[in-house]
Amino acid sequence: MSSEWPLWEVFIRGQHGLNHRHVGSLHAPDAEMAMNNARDVYTRRNEGVSIWVVKSADITASSPSDKGPMFEPSNSKVYRHPTFYDIPDEVGHM
């Protein structure tokens, strides 16, 4: 048998209270080994307190060519940002 082990994406929570963040990927035959390998490859220096591994094939990603239709509509909605509103200084911090 010469099939390659599937690819897994690794996410690590750096500290308590932070989100898990994507740090890279690796190959492993199953989730358990992916977890073991992730520990060895991505946390040799105390980089995390928690690890997620997800099969890369199970991730649905937005396509780069959809960048326009996906994200541009929010560009014109400046009123979603606090700086859109002029509040007089007398009112104080808001």
Partner: peptide
């Protein structure tokens, strides 16, 4: 080793 681990993963699944 690579083959055995692939087979182990397949059987467990």
């Amino acid at each position: 080793v690579r083959e055995a681990m692939t087979e182990h993963a397949r059987k467990r699944a």
